[in-house]
Amino acid sequence: MTAAPYNYSYIFKYIIIGDMGVGKSCLLHQFTEKKFMADCPHTIGVEFGTRIIEVSGQKIKLQIWDTAGQERFRAVTRSYYRGAAGALMVYDITRRSTYNHLSSWLADAKSLTNPNTAIFLIGNKADLEDQRDVPYEEAKAFAEENGLTFLECSAKTGSNVEDAFLETAKQIYQNIQDGSLDLNAADTGVQPKQNLPRAAENNGKKDCNC
């Protein structure tokens, strides 16, 4: 909250998708606030969070859209896939049904985002090892088959949560560096700072952090 809010080189748009109750909002909250929300009600429509991170010395603002998992609002959440640079697809390692639905989430993600969108698979609730219903190796194989990066995380303990969000950003940044992500194309989900009127407005004003 206290950091100079517009001091960054890029904005990357992310979406978080997956079944109801897999812990999407808790992952977002753990990432943005470094806190675990124990008793979290179902997300209303689409929630929004931001955090500034650093990749290869560049400050990047992540703008993260956390979508409701409820089927009846799928039409609304689908409109958020467009223009996402990164998609975090989440399942719950203690509930196989949430893993079984991944192919439908993946089909949506592939058809509604652009080909450069970095899709990251997250098996959440890794702290509940004794209730595990999906073996690590199985999910790992699924990720490899589909060209996804994969990690098991725990929004509760915070384990691997940073890595999931940061690795996705690294992939996107890499795509910018090697030219496979064309910043002039529409709906890339990446916005360089020079196009940010608000950033320019704030330059030289209120930027003294000394």
Partner: peptide, 14 residues
Amino acid sequence: MDYGTILEERTNPA
């Protein structure tokens, strides 16, 4: 696309 809060969000015309 640089929103500060949900209130600033605007729907893409398409």
